[in-house]
Amino acid sequence: MSYFLTQLANGLSYGLILGLIAVGFVIVFTSTGVLNFAHGSVLLTGAYLVAVLHDPIGFWAAVVVGIAGAALLGVLINAVLVRNLAEANPGTAAILMLGVDILLLTELTRRIGNRVLPIGAPWGADVVTLGGVTLPTSRAVAAGLAVLVFGLLWFLFARTGFGVAMRAAAADGDTASLMGIRLSRTGAAGWALAGALAAIAGIFLASFPAPGVAPALAISAFAAIPAWVLGGFDSVVGAIVGGLIIGVVTALAVGYETQLHFLGRGLGEVVPYAVMILVLLVRPSGLFGREEAVRA
């Protein structure tokens, strides 16, 4: 039982981290219509900055720089590249982001090389045990912080004028601009938020299970795509729920792999996508999405 609870706690905390990444996908998509395939390298950039800077300026200062750097990178990608597409539509924008991802990832890979850069987090490899459930401290902190971040996001979108403007712009950009809302600003804010969320997720993913920052970290953003799709493309709540589902399913698949050996090795890698495809077969628009959004 406690093994199950440990796996569950592990899955939920992982799911919250995936939720941070998936929410970034949602916000960029609703605010600028871009399927951000470079999300992973933005995440890696944030984590890389922390790994490089934690020694000279201290961990927490490095975290601030890492988050700000990732946010700024997102804003720049949007302003310099996305807004200058020769033919602006969701398809070309998505492919542009593939190109951007290749550029960023190649450069970061060159800088990191074969090394694994320690992130320098104060919690290191500690674990906490509570009522028979053991969880890496990194994961416990991540879960708490993710919940806090989601609370702040709720405050932003429900209580502030700019947040309401962002939602209005996401719902109907043309009409929002008739209200004097500048879509360039709401778009930039969306990219900045997504970058910051990715950096936070990256820092935690680089402390557990990975021992530090390596280029493979960028791939972890891909693991949030099933969470995003599952939730329904344009729903922040859906992305968080999707993250939790994928997190728990993945943790259980890995935790009980020996019992599930008939499904093959490496189950953890394929299970999120299998769940995604199964859900799409039943609900093509995801759990929280609107049908008309995807089905014309």
Binding site: G91, V229, P284
Partner: peptide
């Protein structure tokens, strides 16, 4: 799935196929 989803939504769904195939 391919008959019901359109455009980039299908693109995201098909990513799953790559991982399924690898498995």
């Amino acid at each position: 799935i391919s008959g019901r989803l359109r455009g980039i939504y299908l693109g995201l769904a098909t990513i799953g196929l790559v991982f399924l195939a690898r498995h």
